[in-house]
Design a protein around this nucleic acid. Structure first.
Length: 220
DNA sequence: ACATTAAGTGATT
DNA sequence: AATCACTTAATGT
């Protein structure tokens, strides 16, 4: 764990903070499709992603879902973190953790260090580098959310689909994606039939190539 | 050989 | 863009 911490964060964090992270953080290997946090689940730890990718999904009461954004190497879900802070301040004395409004699923095998929320606010006061990191991360997440809203509000389904595929290529670092039409439909909150048709269209336009349970993206 | 799951398609709203 | 109803193709047992 130390080496990996060094690799990714030695430039970002001061040595003392790194030591603390080593001490209180729990290193974990996350398998593809593993559920990290579900809607309504308590947030007890915040992940510091070493590598891999986590898909953050919003789910409403009917179980309809929309992909908000992906967490990548060096990312953390600062939104949930700040959420925790607010909760604890305004909060009761009991050790209640705030509830997650999103779901996090591993998009591929990943490694992360899980940090207990209690430590995080402490570090906020102690370490300058931690403050910077959290604020930057927060702003990144916010921008990604705005981007997600834009695509949702202003783009037609075919464009959204293409963007989805291209984003995924970026995150997976592979041009050939493993995904069924149904899975994609769920991510975009549409029906499988629509996805199938639009994918066919994209294939005819020469932008992608279709296989069974696989899609090769040619333009990205 | 049969059942199950993934993908393709026309017609309708 | 969604839904229905149906077909075809690939895969698992």
């Amino acid at each position: 764990m130390q080496e990996k911490l060094q690799d990714y964060f030695s430039v970002v964090f001061e040595p003392e903070l790194l030591k603390e992270i080593e001490k209180f953080g729990v290193y974990k290997v996350i398998k593809e499709n593993e559920l990290l946090i579900d809607v309504g689940g308590s947030i007890t730890h915040i992940p510091l992603l070493l590598n891999g990718a986590i898909k953050i999904v919003r789910e409403d009461d009917n179980g309809d879902e929309i992909v908000l954004y992906f967490l990548e190497r060096g990312d953390t879900c600062a939104i949930s973190f700040v959420n925790c802070l607010n909760y604890n301040k305004s909060g009761d004395s009991k050790l209640n953790y705030s509830k997650s409004k999103v779901r996090g699923v591993a998009e591929k095998d990943s490694e992360a260090i899980f940090l207990p929320v209690a430590k995080l606010s402490e570090w906020l006061e102690k370490y300058q580098s931690w403050r910077v990191f959290v604020i930057e991360s927060y702003s990144e997440r916010l921008n990604e959310m705005i981007e997600a809203i834009d695509t949702l509000a202003f783009m037609r389904m075919d464009q959204r689909l293409l963007k989805y595929l291209q984003d995924k290529v970026k995150i997976m670092r592979e041009t050939t994606l493993n995904a069924t039409h149904l899975q994609i439909a769920l991510d975009l909150n549409t029906s499988r039939v629509v996805v199938s048709r639009l994918l066919k269209q994209l294939e005819n336009e020469g932008k992608i190539k279709l296989f069974r349970k696989k899609i090769e993206v040619l333009e990205y």
